[in-house]
């Protein structure tokens, strides 16, 4: 049972680390909007390529 002297502090440290990580992320506002991010991750992060658009007369 001596192994508990290592395992117990290890478990506590791990648990403590995750609690702190959670508190940090909550305080940073990562859980403020739970709806949009799931859509946002679908979009590619490419810059707009300003290809010379076909000229058009103003639609009005």
């Amino acid at each position: 049972m001596e192994v508990i002297t290592i395992l117990l502090p290890l478990a506590l440290l791990l648990g403590g680390f995750f609690i702190l990580a959670f508190v940090w992320s909550a305080k940073k506002g990562q859980y403020d909007d739970l709806e949009t991010p799931r859509f946002r991750m679908l979009l590619d992060d490419q810059k707009i390529t300003k290809k010379s658009p076909t000229s058009i007369k103003d639609g009005k």
């Binding site: 959670f22 508190v23 305080k27 403020d32």
Partner: peptide, 20 residues
Amino acid sequence: IKEERSALIRIGVAGAAAGN
């Protein structure tokens, strides 16, 4: 916003502690 964030933290702390 601050209230909501702290509500979440309260839940997180309670959940983690209860599990342990």
